[in-house]
């Protein structure tokens, strides 16, 4: 990429030390997000997608810790910063949107107070300027009668409206990166579509990079430019969204796509991947997907594949390795 990526993650490793040994929840994850780009991170529960997000913003709950790798935000390394310095980056340079808007807003403070407080914590503004800016932001995220609603409490807003407020909160200090962790999962479909469009439009206008974590492939297909599919703590496949959805290279991605019921097409039976994702305590040797993979061969059970280039994507699968294609043919 010619320009510096807004976010660059290199070989990230997140560990949880437990009495029965160390669990590796995120293992050797690397990706870049360009300014203005939306990178989708998908995977099933326990794949490590949310932990990747929390590791980037430095909010891992102990005993979880970043055990290796680098996180670089616009050229500045942020994974080894002291807590105080990280506090200034969170909210200012990285905005966050979480699944449940009710838990990300303080129920005891007016919506306006929360936005104004956040603006003033990061930008040198007077109370009055900050309030004007807060109203501007609320209008921008589509809240009708923002001058009046700014003095409302979170419980006076509906779910979709609350998520709009959270979005305003995330954008208020003009961050370089927004991490959105399942931003639409708690919302109804009609509201979900509104929020996705809004997130996409606002970030495109500002050139904000977005890391969109979700388990919903539909949301990714509508929103993301590129997508990373995670399985058992590692990236199984990463590439342009069209290629990953239409012609995936990794058998897991293919299975995942086949298992999603669609509102078009006429498939009678859904493809099903046998079994379920391994627990962190029992990740199989070799490729973590090999016990469920219909194409597994000897090498998959012995060696763990790294991401290998194929078409415009990278896939961690021995099937796409040039020499194994020869060996199998």
């Amino acid at each position: 990429m010619p320009e510096t990526p807004a976010l660059s993650v290199r070989n990230l490793r997140v560990e949880f030390p437990t009495r029965r040994g160390t669990l590796v929840a995120v293992d050797d994850v690397s990706f870049d997000i360009a300014p203005g780009e939306v990178l989708g991170i998908v995977g099933e529960s326990g794949a490590g997608k949310s932990l990747t997000g929390t590791a980037i913003i430095g909010l891992l709950e102990p005993p979880g810790r970043v055990a290796g790798g680098e996180i670089v935000l616009n050229g500045q390394r942020i994974d080894n910063l002291p807590r105080e310095a990280m506090r200034h980056i969170r909210g200012k340079r990285i905005g966050m949107v979480f699944q449940d808007p009710l838990t990300s807003l303080n129920p005891l403070y007016r919506v306006g107070e929360q936005i104004i407080e956040t603006i003033r914590a990061h930008l040198p503004m007077s109370e009055r300027e900050a309030r004007a800016r807060a109203i501007e932001l609320l209008i921008e995220v589509g809240i009708q009668g923002a001058e009046r609603r700014i003095d409302g409490y979170p419980h006076e807003f509906s779910g979709g409206m609350r998520q709009r407020v959270v979005l305003a909160l995330a954008l208020c200090a003009e961050p370089d990166l927004i991490i959105a962790d399942e931003p639409t999962t708690a919302l109804d479909v009609s509201i979900q579509a509104q929020i996705i469009q809004l997130l996409k439009r606002l970030c495109q206008e500002r050139g904000t990079a977005v890391m969109l974590i979700t388990h919903d492939m539909g949301v990714i297909a509508e929103t993301a430019n590129r997508v990373a599919v995670m399985y058992a703590g590692r990236i199984a496949e990463i590439g342009p969204v069209r290629e990953v959805i239409k012609s995936a290279h990794h058998p897991y991605t293919r299975g995942l796509m086949g298992s999603i019921p669609s509102i078009e097409g006429t498939n009678d039976r859904l493809t099903q991947i046998p079994g379920s994702m391994p627990r962190l305590t029992a990740i199989p040797k070799g490729c973590a997907f090999n016990p469920r993979c219909p194409h597994a061969f000897d090498r998959c059970r012995r060696e763990r594949p790294d991401l290998m280039p194929v078409d415009h994507s990278l896939a961690a699968c021995w099937l796409v390795a040039p020499q194994s294609a020869e060996a199998r043919s």
Binding site: S158, G160, M161, V189, S190, I191, Q192, A193, Q194, I196, Q197, D216, M217, G218, V219, A221, E222, V241, R242, I245, K246, M257, I260, S262, I263, E264, G265
Partner: peptide, 21 residues
């Protein structure tokens, strides 16, 4: 409701935005 469902087929069909709640 049918229009609002995120489209996996990526047909790029135009979507009517749903108003209100």
């Amino acid at each position: 409701l049918l229009d609002a469902v995120p489209d996996l087929a990526m047909t790029g069909r135009p979507r009517k935005m749903v108003e209100g709640e």
